[in-house]
């Protein structure tokens, strides 16, 4: 599986040629090693398979899990009350961002913007004074991250 990622990434670099070699960085979290390409995207699924959009919708809305509506608005979820406006609307997000770009922005958005208010949903390191019961844990599991991505992909 990981070898597959490497081969694919190298292939992309070869196509682009000498002008731009894709910079790859590997990160391990909760025993899962994933690859960030060009500090820009995580092209490969964290679980090696696609998520479930229906489950993703639930994780997205759940206040103890994604709670994404705390900050973002989604017209397709108009039946859910109280969408926040700290973050941008996610209507059409799948048309603006690739799957890999969405994945990095959920896993660790601070790679893209160190000053963002948005939490990293799949990073348990580099944090300060974490409440004991959450220490060493990520907000979402790898599977839940993939489910949310599958749901976001329905927002064309």
């Amino acid at each position: 599986m990981r070898t597959g990622v490497m081969v694919a990434a190298l292939a992309v670099s070869a196509v682009i040629g000498g002008a731009a070699i894709a910079a790859e960085r590997q990160v391990t979290e909760q025993g899962i090693t994933y690859t960030i390409v060009d500090e820009h995207a995580i092209p490969e699924s964290l679980t090696g398979k696609p998520g479930d959009p229906e489950k993703g919708r639930k994780v997205f809305v759940n206040r103890k899990l994604g709670n994404c509506l705390a900050c973002h608005q989604v017209s397709a979820l108009a039946d859910e009350p109280y969408h926040g406006n700290v973050g941008p609307s996610l209507d059409g997000v799948a048309s603006r961002l690739s799957e890999g770009e969405m994945r990095l922005r959920i896993v660790d958005p601070k790679v893209v913007n160190p000053d963002t208010i948005m939490p990293a949903f799949f990073r348990s390191t580099g944090l300060h004074d974490v409440l004991e019961k959450f220490r060493g844990k990520t907000i979402l599991t790898a599977e839940q991250v993939e489910d949310v991505i599958a749901f976001l992909k329905t927002l064309q």
């Binding site: 601070k110 939490p119 990293a120 959450f134 907000i139």
Partner: peptide, 14 residues
């Protein structure tokens, strides 16, 4: 200005 907690937020963030 210190970020803290699993949500990694400072007072200033909000």
């Amino acid at each position: 200005y210190q970020r803290r907690g699993q949500l990694d937020m400072s007072c200033a963030n909000c």
